[in-house]
């Protein structure tokens, strides 16, 4: 492959994973909700996009549809578990991820079953070279990264974000302070799922072909590694984590062409990623970037002149 295209292609994947990691950061990093089925909402977004775009809808409508369906499913899946302990949410979401994949695999009629489905490119009328086509996708994806990043920064650096962070710390105490905790949790889960759905749509549009085996639980696991490495509760950390892990992952894929290992590099990579995450959690649970405080509280006005300094 053209090395330039390979680099650009890597950056596309970085962008997709940035969106996914940002969404998990909203759910877990800020609100403390452990979503272990991120890939399910990513997959739903991708398939809804792939299916609806066949009807000749404008691509942004398909993208929004994917996000909406993912959000609705997010609410339906999380609602039974959100009232309960956090391990139940983990089990339900991981199970949901498997079920969605089983459905898309088993039902040929929906989107080709195991054979997958081709997705028409929105840029095909432009007759672009391979390199240009990747660049155009890159621009589209990073525009979305920017928009989502800004919205999430606004959400988390505000009274809304303060409620979310407090829910992460002690949800019963938040309820005792007059906030409807379940409402916030479901809302966050819906937003997070919608964002993952958008990532899915962009992924399908870029790859122009999707099939169920692209959506293994591995994707969720990768997003978690990215979030924990980058630093939970920090949106910039989510971006950095996605960038680093995707580059490491791609780098090792190149390395295997040049380094003759006695073992399968694919296996080595996963064993190393598994060990990496355990070491991170054990010795460096805060990741690269620390959480930033909410910056909207004004400094003290010295109105009374008797500011107590004790």
């Amino acid at each position: 492959m053209d090395p330039m295209v390979f680099l650009l292609d890597t950056l596309v994947f970085v962008g997709i994973f940035m969106i996914l990691t940002l969404s998990l950061n909203l759910e877990y990093g800020f609100t403390g909700l452990g979503n272990f089925g991120k890939v399910a909402f990513f997959m739903v977004g991708a398939y809804i996009y792939a299916i609806t775009i066949q009807f000749g809808l404008p691509f942004y409508i398909s993208l929004v549809l994917g996000a909406v369906v993912a959000a609705i499913l997010g609410a339906l899946v999380s609602l039974p578990a959100l009232r309960l302990r956090e391990d139940y949410l983990a089990i339900t979401t991981i199970a949901f991820g498997e079920i969605v994949r089983i459905i898309f695999k088993a039902e040929q009629a929906i989107a080709g079953g195991v054979w997958g489905i081709a997705v028409p490119s929105i840029f095909q009328d432009l007759n672009l070279s391979i390199r240009m086509s990747v660049i155009v996708n890159l621009l589209l994806i990073y525009c979305m990264v920017a928009v989502i990043f800004i919205i999430l920064q606004m959400l988390t650096n505000s009274p809304y974000g303060r409620v979310l962070r407090s829910i992460r710390e002690d949800d019963e105490a938040v309820a005792a302070l007059g906030k409807n905790v379940i409402y916030y949790k479901v809302q966050v889960f819906m937003i997070g799922s919608a964002i993952a759905g958008i990532a899915g749509g962009l992924y399908a549009q870029y790859l122009r072909f999707i099939e169920p085996n692209m959506f293994l639980p591995l994707v969720t696991f990768f997003v978690w590694i990215m979030l924990i490495l980058g630093g939970t509760g920090n949106n910039k950390g989510a971006l950095v984590g996605a960038l680093l892990i995707e580059f490491i992952s791609r780098g090792s894929r190149i390395a295997k062409d040049y380094v003759a290992l006695p073992v399968d590099p694919h296996n080595v990579q996963f064993v190393l990623f598994g060990i990496l995450i355990i070491i991170l959690i054990m010795y460096w649970p805060n990741g690269l970037l620390r959480e930033k405080q909410i910056q909207t509280v004004p400094e003290r006005r010295i109105a009374h002149g008797d500011s107590v300094s004790k």
């Binding site: 696991f221 399968d264 996963f270 995450i277 959690i281």
Partner: peptide, 22 residues
């Protein structure tokens, strides 16, 4: 925390599965 314990167990799962695969 509980969520990190679960993540670690998934990570351990990958280590074991791919060691077996190797």
């Amino acid at each position: 925390n509980l969520i990190y314990l679960m993540i670690s167990s998934i990570a351990l799962g990958y280590v074991l599965r791919h060691t077996i695969g190797e």
